[in-house]
Design a protein around this nucleic acid. Structure first.
Lengths: 334, 334
DNA sequence: TTGAAAGCGTTACCAT
DNA sequence: ATGGTAACGCTTTCAA
């Protein structure tokens, strides 16, 4: 049986109210009493019951992070940033994975109506074309910050990388490297992040490559299916000579396809991926990447969320914070 | 204001007790009443308050995962396994990062005395040479399962890979590839996982390589310091011709050092790493790896923990579950 | 089959 | 400066 405030009160023959206030370092309590209480608490190994406190206060000092997946350098680093901020403010972090399923995402968010968490950090799934479950929480006045994979139409704070711009720059770079047929492979067109990158790609092509080749590929969650999609793409005479991958995991797939089909990177196909992956420089050939500021995005999103939580009035303001990506040029596009 | 059991009771003019039991699908309640309650609950958007429930029941349906870091393919995959099991049993997952600091780990575990979580999954930090903070929780009868980086002396369940054996096999393999001077680089000798791998390495050397070169290197959390350690190691005439890396992150460091010092892998140095890293095959040269069953370890650890939670009596049994690793031979050791 | 009421541990209001 | 007590929302025992 663990120590309660009441036990401390009994031991010191004072009231629970006094103990509670003393532990909260209230100015109403005398120095002496505080000392007494603190000593007794330490001696008795007192640890406050967070659930009693949460129930009473209506706040849990807990936030939720909802992600499509975790085995991805971007999300792993983002969590790092989130955890750092949360810890520093005394918040606890619940983690949920949607596994790219809208259904799961809906079920996860539904639970948050319970008050389990004070706020939510969300990066939506590939399938998320309907955002009613997110709006519902916003209407419930639960602070929510979207990051990386956001829904711009929602009336809340978003933290993203400069996807349009970096995609534009990346595409232009491939054009400058004499690519005539540049393809773009993303995950879901539901995702605004993917749309932004696609638009950056299209925009760069239209402004700098009047030739007109344009090819937007939707990859699959399933690696083997994506393999087939790429294999089909690269078969035939009019295949692309450059490709931009919007998803980290596709790097392995395209390298494999090229190895199997004896397609030389970069001579026959230049490859560029949006990823943070720290081994990119040691791949064969070393991979040109658009590095997103993952840690920074996590930190910024968490900071924005905790800032919202610090206000008593839940202001639903729409705001988008854009952080710069960095392109690192390597051999896969040389 | 969110819906409570009392509101449902008022709406239906029945008691809160009845509503509570109906929602719990108790056999005490009639079919009709249950239906009435369920409908009202759905209509009113009722979501149970988990903190009220946790306080009353003394259980939170929440577990904690405490990790040294997250930007590591092993831990990311392990979380995946953990989350899958937790979700299927209706548990929530709190995540904490020790960042390889014993102090942080202690602070994190200390909080768990509060009853915030029903059980704990822990992979200890590099610095963890004192396990009093873990014993304290075990004595508090809080179920805890250690995984990957475990402390065998503790009286609890451990889930690990076959580190001794795979290290032994890896070392023997390098010997068979004519390596005469094989070094081993690990993180902390505090970690039993590292000790097991070191012992597998030593054992293989002693049985198969009477020559007697043996070199155990302790790397640093700081990448730049590890770089220096490796650079120093590889300078000079009697440098190793093979190296086993016990830490994923060291792969990038050794590749960098070799690139900078013009050391050819595998001809001048054969490299083999304990990692799950799915791009290993595309590195230049492709990297020979000991793949740990990360997802499986996470799943197994979570399953063991939830099994413990399902018992009313907390039995403190010591048990170690060992899962097999797989060595994948590639060009870095050819 | 239903309901009244106690209580989980904490906080906060109102007295003293 | 301290204390009594109600309340947070739920579960569970006991009584009807």
């Amino acid at each position: 049986m663990s120590t309660t405030i009441r036990m401390i009160a009994n031991r010191l023959s004072i009231s629970v109210a006094t103990v509670s206030k003393a532990l909260a370092d209230s100015h109403e309590i005398s120095k002496e009493t505080k000392l007494l209480v603190l000593n007794a608490a330490k001696e008795m190994g007192y640890v406050p019951n967070p659930y009693a406190s949460s129930l009473r206060k209506g706040r849990s000092k807990t936030i939720a992070v909802v992600l499509p997946e975790i085995a991805d350098s971007f999300f792993a680093e983002a969590i790092n940033g989130i955890e750092e901020v949360a810890l520093s403010k005394g918040y606890h972090v619940l983690i949920y994975l949607s596994h790219e399923s809208l259904l799961r995402e809906q079920a996860i968010l539904q639970d948050f109506k319970s008050g389990r968490v004070d706020g939510i950090l969300l990066s939506v799934s590939e399938e998320t074309n309907d955002t009613a479950h997110i709006s519902a929480l916003i209407e419930n006045r639960i602070p929510i910050v979207l990051f990386d994979r956001v829904c711009e139409e929602l009336n809340t704070t978003c933290v993203v990388a400069d996807d349009f711009e970096s995609s534009y720059t990346a595409t232009k770079y491939l054009i400058s490297k004499s690519c005539k047929r540049i393809a773009f492979a993303g995950n879901s067109i539901n995702l605004s992040i993917n749309r932004n990158r696609v638009n950056g790609y299209i925009s760069a092509l239209e402004k700098n490559n009047p030739g007109g080749y344009q090819n937007i590929i939707i990859s699959d969650k399933d690696k083997d299916i994506s393999y087939q999609i790429f294999a089909d793409l690269l078969r035939g005479p009019n295949r692309p000579d450059g490709i931009i991958l919007s998803v980290e995991k596709l790097s392995a797939v395209i390298y494999k396809v090229c190895a199997d089909m004896m397609i030389d990177i970069p001579n026959q196909l230049k490859v560029l991926t949006f990823t943070n992956f720290n081994m990119a420089q040691f791949l064969s050939p070393s991979l040109t990447t658009v590095n997103q500021p993952a840690f920074q995005i996590g930190k910024t999103a968490a900071t924005a969320l905790l800032r919202k939580l610090s206000f008593t009035t839940t202001l639903t303001e729409s705001e988008t914070i854009v952080l710069p990506s960095q392109i690192i040029y390597r051999d896969s596009t040389s």
